[in-house]
């Protein structure tokens, strides 16, 4: 559960107080960057997305409604910014859902060379080996709590395709855990 910033700061920021917005940045910067990293598995991309997210938030903060948690609102901007960022980076978001990810197969084939790595490292590697759409879908669903329908809508893919994408991503990640067990 994320520690929320106090409402007064948010209200001041919505009224144009730049210092209040600075406090918001200080409070949420790590969470935003970490989420962006989950979506991209790339530190420089995560940094770009974090900066863009706060700039967008600053421009749109007048429209924030206190019905939703501020963190929910901010992390939704992070999600949308990440999707846009990956699209602009000309990466194949909606690659053929019938194809297996070739990078992961290589990692599995080379299990002898990686099985010395600890679980976290292998999971990190497995995450970065997921396709962008797989990483986005599993993070949105599992970490951010989006529904399948919402995830599919944000990623502009069909609901069934979204289910398949998430299923495939989970299967690939769980394989790394089984390696751990068998090792």
């Amino acid at each position: 559960m994320m520690n929320e910033i106090d409402d007064k700061t948010v209200v001041k920021a919505t009224q144009g107080d730049k210092n209040a917005f600075r406090l918001i940045v200080l409070h949420y910067a790590q969470a935003v960057n970490r989420l962006a990293y989950r979506y991209t598995a790339d530190a420089s991309h995560a940094e770009d997305i974090a900066q863009e997210t706060f700039i967008k938030a600053f421009q749109a903060i007048g429209r924030y409604q206190s019905k939703a948690k501020f963190s929910t609102w901010l992390l939704r901007i992070t999600t949308n910014t990440s999707i846009d960022y990956l699209r602009k980076a000309n990466r194949q978001l909606a690659h053929s859902l019938d194809q297996e990810c070739p990078q992961l197969e290589l990692a599995e084939d080379g299990i002898d060379t990686v099985d010395q790595l600890d679980l976290n490292q292998r999971l990190m590697r497995a995450m970065s080996d997921l396709s962008d759409v797989e990483r986005l879908a599993i993070t949105m669903k599992h970490h951010q709590g989006y529904s399948i329908e919402e995830t599919a809508q944000e990623l502009k893919i069909k609901s069934n395709a979204c289910k398949q994408t998430i299923f495939r991503a989970v299967r690939k990640l769980r394989k790394q855990l089984k390696v751990e067990v068998s090792a």
């Binding site: 960057n33 990293y37 989950r38 995450m127 599992h142 970490h143 769980r174 855990l177």
Partner: peptide, 15 residues
């Protein structure tokens, strides 16, 4: 498994 994956993801990318 999903919890393990989540824990691993949380430890990634130190800032």
């Amino acid at each position: 498994d999903m919890n393990a994956i989540e824990r691993a993801a949380e430890q990634q990318h130190p800032l």
